[in-house]
């Protein structure tokens, strides 16, 4: 009888904690087999995904997964963060290539959509790299990693829950940032082969099928046929606008960098700084068209001084490729 078999083998499903996060990452059952292999538990609804334009985080490599509870569907909405159903989880895994060539897992962050709102949890991988422990207060870690062809040692911040929300804020509430249709609209190498992520999600029944689907997508950094302007705006949208928008943590700055913003003052053109302090770098305008190296925006991307650098949290190294992109964009205005 089937019911007998059911009792012997517990249902393979993702576990969501009632209150605080589980002590260990393994308890969620997001992955099958050896946890370190990070093989998504697809049978239970965990799906890997990727973004065209990722957030720069000190050159950390990332793997992303989404879990949408069975029977739920994400409404299709372009131009904004998707409204994921209650019970959904976003999983982001941060790792580096160690100086000895092996992969070093640092942390795995979760955003869990509870009925009362999004809950951020951070898991820090143990020394043995077998599992990750819940970490509330975060902290600084010294990382030695092989980045862009050189060995680098630097200070890496694991954010505390408040620092998670500092970026993941929308009108004071915690919200995801990454899952935007335009940023998800790309091919992904699934175990079954390469396929468009949007089409796959729709086919799987976790994303509503749109009546008039857009083909719009944000470019990737190395997309050869995308304009510098388009890449720069997507870069700023992903790396800055979660705070730099009216609903974000940097609303008081008056600098709003969403992809769709077309207002030149709030985009920073000829805009004097408001509360930049040393972050002004001695310059008077956030963006001085034609003069990237006299623009505060670029200065703060380059600076490694704690109270000058942007983003404020999660960046100790500067992003050479991002700096080159923004420099090219401003210089050619």
């Amino acid at each position: 009888m089937q019911c007998n078999k059911k009792e012997e083998e517990p249902l393979n499903k993702v576990n969501i904690p009632e209150g605080d996060g589980f002590p260990m990452l393994s308890e969620y059952n997001f992955f099958k087999g050896t946890l370190h292999d990070l093989i998504p538990n697809e049978e239970a609804g965990v799906l890997p995904y990727d973004l065209n334009m990722p957030l720069f985080s000190d050159y950390a490599m990332k793997q992303r997964f989404i879990y949408v509870p069975d029977g739920n569907i994400i409404p299709y909405e372009e131009g904004q963060t998707l409204d994921l159903p209650i019970g959904s989880v976003l999983i982001k895994h941060f790792y580096y290539t160690s100086t000895n060539g092996t992969e070093k897992y640092i942390e795995t962050r979760l955003l869990i959509h509870k009925a009362e709102g999004w809950q951020a949890e951070t898991y820090e991988w143990n020394e043995e790299q077998t599992d990750a422990n819940r970490n509330i207060i975060g902290g600084n870690r010294t990382i030695s990693a092989h980045i862009n062809g050189t060995d680098q040692s630097f200070n890496y911040l694991i954010p505390n829950v408040n620092q998670c929300k500092n970026c993941h804020a929308f009108n004071g509430k915690q919200e995801p940032i990454g899952p935007v249709i335009e940023n998800l609209n790309k091919n992904f190498s699934y175990s079954s082969g390469s396929a468009n992520q949007i089409a796959t999600w729709i086919a799987m029944g976790i994303l509503e099928a749109p009546i008039n689907p857009s083909t719009a997508h944000w470019p990737s950094m190395n997309e050869s046929n995308a304009s510098t302007e388009d890449k720069a705006r997507a870069y700023l949208a992903v790396n800055c606008s979660s705070c730099h928008r009216l609903e974000g943590s940097a609303a008081n700055s008056g600098l709003y960098l969403e992809y769709a913003n077309q207002d030149s003052l709030s985009l920073g053109f000829w805009k004097n700084p408001v509360a930049a302090g040393g972050g002004s770098g001695g310059f008077s305008y956030v963006i001085k068209p034609g003069y990237a190296d006299e623009s505060i925006l670029l200065y703060r991307m380059i600076s490694d001084v704690v109270n000058e650098r942007m983003p404020e949290i999660g960046r100790n190294l500067s992003h050479d490729e991002g700096i080159a992109l923004i420099r090219e964009w401003i210089d050619n205005m």
């Binding site: 600084n140 200070n155 911040l157 408040n162 620092q163 929300k165 500092n166 804020a169 004071g172 943590s249 704690v306 109270n307 404020e312 949290i313």
Partner: peptide, 13 residues
């Protein structure tokens, strides 16, 4: 000795 964060103490929302 601060190495992270844009302010000493921060209270929000």
């Amino acid at each position: 000795g601060q190495t992270a964060g844009g302010e000493g103490v921060l209270v929000t929302n």
